[in-house]
Structures are given as C-alpha cells and as structure tokens.
C-alpha cells in the first residue's frame, strides 16, 4: 500500500471480565486501511466483530495494542469517526423526528445550518420529505436510512458500520447495500463494514478481512478485484465472485489450514 493509511490497528486484544470467568473477545488483530478504502470484516457469529468496531471507534479501550487514526493514537472518540449501529430500534431516538435524529450529531452547528445539512443528508438516503416523521412511523428499512443519514451528516472521514442490514428483509437489504456504496463513494468516505454475510462483504468491499472464532484474530485478507458498479445479480454470477466466496467460506470452516 503506497498511501499512508488512515486507520492502523496493531496487536488489538480485549477481554471482558464476567462474574465467574473472563472471556477474551479479540486476541491479536492488526490491519491497515487506506483513505477511501471500503473494508469488509467477516467472521463466525460471536467472534468479537462488534468488540473490534467499538475499539476502533474509541467506544471501548483495548487491553493490548493500539489504534491509530490519521497518524494519531486513538484515546477518546475521534471527531471524524461515525458509526451506524446494528439495530435501528436501539439507536434512533423515538422522541425525536427523523430530521431531529439526523441533526443530533451536529446540534451545535446552529439551527438553520443544521436543518439544511440534515435535509441534505436525508435527501441523500432517499428520505426527502420524511423529516417530520417519528421513527416508529417509518418502516425498518427507512429507519436504517435515517441511521445512515445521521452517520454521514457530520461529514466524517471514517464510517464504521456494525451489521447495519441485519434486521431488514432481503429486498430492502440489497437496496440499502447499493445505496451505501453509492453514498460513501460520493463522499469519499473510508468505510469499515462488519457483517456475517460473506456475499454482502464481497459485493460491497474493496478488501475483506476474515476473522477467526473467539478469541478472534485475522485469518486472511482477501482483496476483491471486482469491477464497480457491482450488481446484485450480475456480479454474483461471475466466476470470480464465486471463487472469493468459496475461499472465504473455506478459511472460516477450516481455520487451521488458513495459510
């Protein structure tokens, strides 16, 4: 990688102390991510993907290792980092309208400017005209669009997404995947997408990081050389796509033979 990386993680480890036992969520994770790169992270369920994301976002402090963002070590939550959380039910505020939810991260920017930027962000996710709706008046897919709008409204440089499409139906999911790729490309965002869906990772990412089961480490990095724009149906039919899928499945199923 010729460019200086925007994100660099080295030797990340994190354990959680329970009442009786200690669970090691991640063991030793290291990777670099170039500016503008779309990185997919896949792994078996319960493998500590969310813990990794929380460490990268600064929401959780790793026990070992370091995270660097833009050349500086991450200690708190960097300003230019934003997150789309897994479950919109638990991340959108029901007492605010869609517009107010989107405006929440930029609430200090003045009323008029904030409103304008929130409107623009809602436009981008295809929800123009829904600013005054409360989340419970919107469908699941629309709610997750609001969550995406909220994540991009502050114009972050690094967007972390934690299984963002896990709780929507398959049809909506394909639409949202496409929308996410388009928007993040337009804004030149660096994206890290956590997912348990291997196809989703291949369809969206420039490179896929395959994690092992808990305590997780990086099993393999798979660069995805598929042309863009990728298509839900056409791209999936390509032999190369099938090769990637087979490779990643194999690595996850037989972690011992990874290298």
């Amino acid at each position: 990688m010729a460019e200086t990386p925007l994100v660099r993680a080295a030797g990340l480890g994190k354990s959680f102390r329970g009442r009786r036992s200690t669970t090691q969520a991640i063991a030793d994770i290291g990777f670099e991510q170039a500016p503008g790169e779309f990185l997919g992270v896949v792994g078996p369920s319960g493998c500590g993907k969310t813990t990794l994301l929380r460490c990268l976002a600064g929401l959780e402090r790793p026990d070992t290792g370091t995270v660097e963002f833009d050349g500086r070590p991450v200690t708190g939550i960097p300003d230019a980092v934003s997150v789309v959380f897994q479950d919109y039910h638990r991340s959108l505020f029901p007492w605010l309208t869609a517009g107010e939810n989107v405006r929440f991260p930029i609430r200090d920017r003045g009323r008029a400017a904030g409103r304008e930027q929130a409107r623009e962000a809602l436009d981008r996710v295809g929800l123009a005209g829904f600013a005054d709706h409360h989340p419970f008046q919107l469908s699941g897919g629309m709610q997750q669009r609001v969550a995406i709008a909220r994540a991009i409204v502050s114009r972050p440089r690094f967007l972390l997404m934690d299984e963002p499409f896990a709780s929507v139906d398959a049809q909506t999911r394909a639409v949202l995947e496409q929308l996410t790729v388009t928007i993040t490309a337009e804004l030149g965002l660096t994206v890290l997408l956590i997912t348990h869906d291997i196809d989703e990772a291949i369809l969206m990412a420039d490179r896929v990081l395959v994690l092992s089961a808990r305590p997780s480490r990086v099993l393999r990095e798979v660069p995805i050389d598929l042309d863009r724009p990728r298509d839900e149906v056409e791209t999936r039919a390509l032999p190369l796509f099938q090769d990637y899928r087979r490779e990643i499945h194999r690595v996850i199923a037989n972690p011992g033979t990874a290298d």
Binding site: I77, V81, F85, S91, F93, P105
Partner: peptide, 12 residues
Amino acid sequence: PGYLDVARISHA
C-alpha cells in the same frame, strides 16, 4: 445502551 453509544459517538 445503544442510545448512550450514539450520545458518545456524537460527543453529546
């Protein structure tokens, strides 16, 4: 807890 995460990430 998700609400609190959003607050933290939004520096609220």
